[in-house]
Design a protein around this nucleic acid. Structure first.
Lengths: 238, 238
DNA sequence: AATATTAACTTGTATTTACAAGTAAAAAGT
DNA sequence: ACTTTTTACTTGTAAATACAAGTTAATATT
């Protein structure tokens, strides 16, 4: 859609190294080239290289050891969609399908919303949708999303099937997820959730309430996610 | 115990600002002094100040906006023990008590341990303990800990009551938590867990399996934690 | 052969300098 | 009164330089 040209050098190196790690060119336990070598290889100075490595370390791709070097950390082998350690959610994707259950529509915000809303958000109303996400053809997530209807023209008429919501927001509206917060609970599955996740009613389900920040300071994305964790676990780094 | 003298400047500023935020001297939404002002105030140069701010941003205490400044982010108001966003676990502590259920002892590692162990770990055996943690006098966490028995003399004879395990490790053995990973599941409470957490058997319980890395590259801490999330949620930033 | 020392690496910390890019308020123009 | 432009701030990126401190392997010593 839009070709980003002005990517900073440290970002560029970050992406290169990250890709190499994901693709297995650098494997778990491997030593990355030293900072000085990376400087030479990519024509940057050490502070710039160090910034890339620092971000990689923060995102859990490498660990740094003084005197030794940067060591590639093992990738999460479990399901990575909710890991949210990296900037994108591209960690080890499996066979993931998305099915729209409730098509996106503009509604009023629910009473007693799970997060505190700003006045601007309340006035704007929200875009609402429900999706079921299947992993290896098994229903694992039931995802209810709320997005404040701020500067998102024609969003309800877009194709959401088998495309990441985040991808649409990035490609069409230049919206990037910068961070967020979440609350996690274990709850008994309701009738609705249990049927979608093919569980017995009352079986334990993981419930996540998330608020995501974007590069637009007034725009947040909210999700209420129910997970069947009988087979898969949610994985996280810290 | 040991007085750390050689604290780097960026670390020092990080701790100062973090403390000010926690204590409410800087409140949510407030603008921190600009980078140049901080340079003057604390006699540092901008890269040094920026390193402090970068860490604060990473730990979720502030958000940075180009052209605007560093804005104090709201602190997690829920229970912070498992937030683990900061370097220490000092986020908003409430009335938290710890009760030892199984006193620390040295045992062999369980068969089929929840994480892959190194040969060194297997040989060393592990220190095992079980603790119940109460929040406002209600049992919330049941924590089963495993620590590889590597360079930890006399640890089984130490006082664990009402003292953080991490604190003991830091004060007596200079061990700091650097990061880690975890798997999260929702499971039905077993008879044992339900009785400790005063729940009905089969009620949903959050189960966390954690592996924590330390400043000693060969030493890891492991915990299997069961949480009663009826009243409190686990809070996390990303 | 075993131990201690040295040297050559590695990352960590810190200063100095410069310009780019985003934001907000003051100043100028209409 | 309103809009546009300028200005003065903010953070972001990047280079060049220096030394400290941890690690490892080669070297010298015992």
């Amino acid at each position: 859609m839009v070709l980003e040209k002005n990517i900073p050098q440290h970002r560029r190196l970050y992406e290169i190294l990250r890709k190499h790690i994901i693709e297995g060119i650098y494997q778990e336990g491997d030593l990355l080239p030293s900072e000085n070598e990376l400087c030479q290889l990519y024509g940057m100075t050490r502070p710039t290289v160090r910034q890339s490595l620092s971000t990689l370390a923060n995102d859990g791709y490498i660990r740094k050891h003084q005197g030794k070097g940067s060591i590639v950390h093992h990738l999460p082998k479990e399901i990575g969609i909710l890991s949210v350690s990296g900037t994108t959610s591209a960690v080890g994707r499996r066979n993931l399908k998305t099915r729209i259950i409730v098509k996106p529509s503009i509604i009023k915000w629910p009473e007693n919303f799970m997060f505190q809303l700003t006045e601007l958000e309340k006035e704007s109303g929200c875009i609402y949708l429900e999706r079921l996400r299947l992993l290896e053809n098994e229903p694992i997530f039931y995802d209810i999303s709320f997005i404040a209807n701020i500067n998102l023209p024609r969003i309800t008429s877009r194709q959401f099937e088998n495309r990441s919501l985040f991808q649409i927001l990035r490609d069409h509206y230049h919206i990037e997820i910068k961070g967020g917060e979440q609350r996690i609970k274990a709850i008994p599955a309701s009738a609705k959730i249990s049927s979608f996740l093919s569980l017995k009613k009352g079986q334990p389900v993981l419930h996540l309430e998330r608020k995501m920040e974007t590069n637009n300071p007034v725009l947040f994305l909210y999700s209420s996610i129910f997970c069947n964790t009988e087979k898969y676990s949610i994985f996280g780094r810290f």
